[in-house]
Design a binder for these strands. Sequence first.
DNA 1: AACACGTGGTG
DNA 2: TCACCAAGTGT
Length: 349
Amino acid sequence: MTSTPATAQSAGDAAVEPATGRPAGTPAPRPADSAAASAPAAASVTGAATDAADAADAAGRRLHAPVNDWFDEHARDLPWRRPEAGAWGVMVSEFMLQQTPVNRVVPVYEQWLARWPRPADLAAEPSGEAVRAWGRLGYPRRALRLHAAASAIRERHGGDVPREHAQLLALPGVGEYTAAAVASFAYGQRHAVLDTNVRRVFARAVTGRQYPPNATTAAERKLARALLPEDEATAAKWAAATMELGALVCTARSPECVRCPVAAQCAWRLAGSPEHEGPPRRVQTYAGTDRQVRGKLLDVLREAVAPVPQARLDAVWHEPIQRARALDGLVADGLVEPLPDGLYRLPLT
DNA sequence: AACACGTGGTG
DNA sequence: TCACCAAGTGT
């Protein structure tokens, strides 16, 4: 078997690799493409309805080259950006990175890809093994969905991560963001990739607000599409670059504007960096919730090599009603398999 | 639309 | 300390 399944799958597509990064130690390429190739389509109609599009065109032309050039210089050498990661590596990383910081993902990602280098390798194992290998990344349903996605890839796509956005979107655990991310990062396609980093960068640089709305809006999607460079390879780099800018410089708490390649044209700064207005972003509570209990229960089962008696699980939480509800929920979600005689384990299915 | 869903780092 | 935050998805 090859160690680069998805790369082999797309071997004929020369435009794929450079989208999201470069090999470590490689001098940053400085293609002369940025300015010329990234000019968005000109607005074709006059009138007020096109003002927003015109503004986005203008903003895009000013932002594409500096942001993409900054990325060439400062992109992190993350394992899923290396060519050998392939589409499967990109997909695994995207699942793990959902709501989870990069530095916690890296070691789990490395072990995962070493153990399951292709989707079929994961699909061949019980889903409980995926849950166990997920470790303490959090939201373990993602592990279950990644396992289910691997099975679907084996059954429906001959073992290769599909290239089509619609086919990616149909996979378990793949939503709008992840479908666009895989299509863009793994296959170099032109898609608006709108994650929390990109939303914040656009909110500041273009819309002039400190933070984006609580939930993604149609206006944000429209803006993201309008800002997307025309050229496919430039668009793919732009997707990764805007995300990286949000992750490294234009951060939520304390943006480092002195290091920002577009600080001089940032709408939020030009407006005087006004404080956020509107409804505060809801803080998700955790202590005392079912989620915390589920976490404790699953922690016991992850560490166990044999089925665990109910009494071991009862020890993790004092309140019996909530404890039972949490365990029932885990079983209902397919994260835990109940056995006769009050024994429990991670699923073997 | 609002809520559930883990875990750990940080200012 | 504790609220906030981290490459979202499914219902």
